[in-house]
């Protein structure tokens, strides 16, 4: 066997088997973890589009808790929303949906939900 032939096969395999070129170092999987940095209880982090809704993290998080890491399979910019209420209110069922604005997902992200005097917001970690 000639050397150029082997090189060509090695090149083809290395390109073909990875299945992704740029993605190997730019983005990979799309994993998400949510941390509750507020004094409220939060639940049901969702991506909400103009015509579709996907539940990203279904865990209910008490203050200070972190969710399990989820492979959400979304890479892009999405409008996020979650349910929040103070701990007593949450049990009573008066939690309200909070719009978190457009956030960028992709790769491994940890979001920390916090509330300050400007209102609720997501901190990307």
């Amino acid at each position: 066997m000639r050397k150029p032939f082997l090189w060509a096969i090695a090149l083809l395999l290395s390109f073909g088997l990875t299945g992704c070129l740029f993605s190997a170092f730019l983005a990979g999987d799309s994993r998400l973890q949510l941390e509750n940095g507020s004094r409220m209880a939060i639940a049901e982090l969702e991506a909400v589009g103009p015509g579709d809704t996907v539940l990203l993290v279904g865990d209910t998080l008490w203050p200070g808790e972190r969710s399990r890491t989820r492979d959400v399979g979304l890479d892009g910019i999405f409008r996020l929303r979650l349910l929040a209420g103070d701990t007593a209110c949450f049990r009573a069922g008066c939690a309200q949906a909070i719009d978190l604005g457009e956030q960028e997902l992709g790769g491994s992200v940890r979001f920390r939900f916090a509330v300050d005097r400007d209102g609720p917001w997501l901190e990307k970690r």
């Binding site: 740029f22 991506a47 996907v54 890479d75 892009g76 910019i77 999405f78």
Partner: peptide, 17 residues
Amino acid sequence: SPESFPMRSPLGLHHGW
């Protein structure tokens, strides 16, 4: 550029190629 051509779906804006 990887940011060139995103796709708009009913859910949002997806990064891709």
